[in-house]
């Protein structure tokens, strides 16, 4: 009997419910569009070519980090070490003679640092059962120490021109770094949504016990997610160093928080097993637009931080309500 009732319900609901489901599902995209329209109305210069390309340049490194952060959050984790990895990768970029001949070497060293950090994080979390918060906090601190020990306080040296171009130049008006972000986004979206690996990520995050009973190597899946996050953070660090040009010990500062905020805002659930790369990227876009319009409207730059803080709590509360 209850079956019949339910079937009836689902049939009757299809009309109004579909509209509501649509709104729920695309609330984020709608928010982004509304935000852009509002910003454009309030400040005409918002949609100017210069400002748009500026925003896209800023969005690219954040987007790359968010992709990795999403993987980690999907398996019930959190990666606080991304900013530290970014800064270390940036320091690596200036640690050679600043010529393009070293570009490949820099790439290998930087990405290597990211992958190893991710591996350590993953091993601590999966094999030692350390809480992700503490594991990535600890690697963050260790990396920070190694970095400042290596640079003896302040890094000197130049970012090779290759990375300068990657970080700040455009091709046909599209920033190189955005192209890279786009390629990565597509690649990792496919990995997550269309492969058995991606499915195992969702199952492991959704229910680790079930994953084990299904013969899925949940530890390996978890470790891989942290490695992906580490590697992407290192790449983002290289690109960001090319964008800012000068490297200090704190390139990427705040990216750990921003990437978590963007992912959560984009519907990646901290409880694991739910969310998409696309959602996280929309979250990142909203964050960048909000930051930018704060300045465009003429509010002091400090308001960016305040709004960020409010947005993360509101977004999280929104998803709690939606889940209930």
């Amino acid at each position: 009997m209850s079956q019949a009732v339910e079937t009836n319900l689902s049939a009757a609901a299809s009309g109004a419910e579909n509209a509501r489901n649509f709104l729920r599902q695309y609330a984020l995209h709608i928010a982004l569009v509304v935000l852009i329209i509002l910003s454009a109305l309030i400040s005409p210069s918002f949609l100017s070519g210069g400002n748009v390309s500026n925003m896209l340049l800023q969005a690219a490194p954040l987007g790359i980090v968010v992709i990795g952060q999403a993987f980690v959050i999907l398996v019930r984790g959190l990666d606080l070490s991304v900013a530290s990895v970014m800064a270390t990768a940036a320091v690596a970029a200036t640690s050679f003679n600043g010529q393009d001949t070293d570009a490949l070497l820099i790439f290998v060293v930087a990405i290597g640092i990211g992958l190893i950090t991710g591996l350590v994080n993953g091993l601590l979390v999966a094999k030692r059962n350390v809480s992700p918060f503490l594991a990535t906090l600890a690697t963050m601190i260790v990396l920070q120490g190694m970095r400042s020990a290596w640079t003896q306080g302040a890094p000197s040296g130049n970012v090779p021109p290759f990375y300068r171009i990657l970080g700040s130049d455009s091709i046909y008006g599209v920033p190189y770094n955005l192209v890279i972000t786009g390629v990565l986004a597509v690649f990792f979206s496919v990995l997550l949504a269309k492969t058995t690996f991606g499915r195992k990520v969702y199952i492991t995050g959704g229910n680790p016990v079930t994953a084990r009973l299904l013969g899925i190597n949940a530890d390996w899946i978890t470790i891989t997610c942290y490695v992906i996050s580490g590697g992407l953070a290192a790449l983002a660090g290289l690109i960001l160093s090319g964008f800012v040009g000068i490297v200090d010990n704190w390139v990427g500062r705040g990216f750990e928080i921003d990437s978590i905020v963007a992912a959560v805002m984009g519907g990646v659930a901290l409880s694991g097993g739910r969310g998409t790369i696309a959602g996280g990227l929309v979250g990142a876009a909203i964050l960048v637009v909000v930051f930018n319009s704060v300045l465009q409207i003429g509010m002091p730059i400090q308001m960016q931080i305040i709004i960020k803080g409010l947005v993360i709590v509101i977004a999280a509360a929104f998803y709690v309500r939606r889940a209930a």
Binding site: A193, K194, T195, T196, F197, G198, R199, K200, Y202, I203, G206, N207, V209, T210, A211, L213, L214, G215, A269, G273, R274
Partner: peptide
């Protein structure tokens, strides 16, 4: 709930979870 289903995943994913081989080719779903 604790040891069987991945509650947030859909019906299809839960049904095929123990048998990803038949719904995939070369690792692609």
């Amino acid at each position: 709930k604790g040891q069987g289903l991945a509650m947030l995943l859909d019906v299809a994913a839960n049904i095929t979870a123990a048998d990803l081989q038949t719904v995939s080719r070369n690792g692609f779903l």
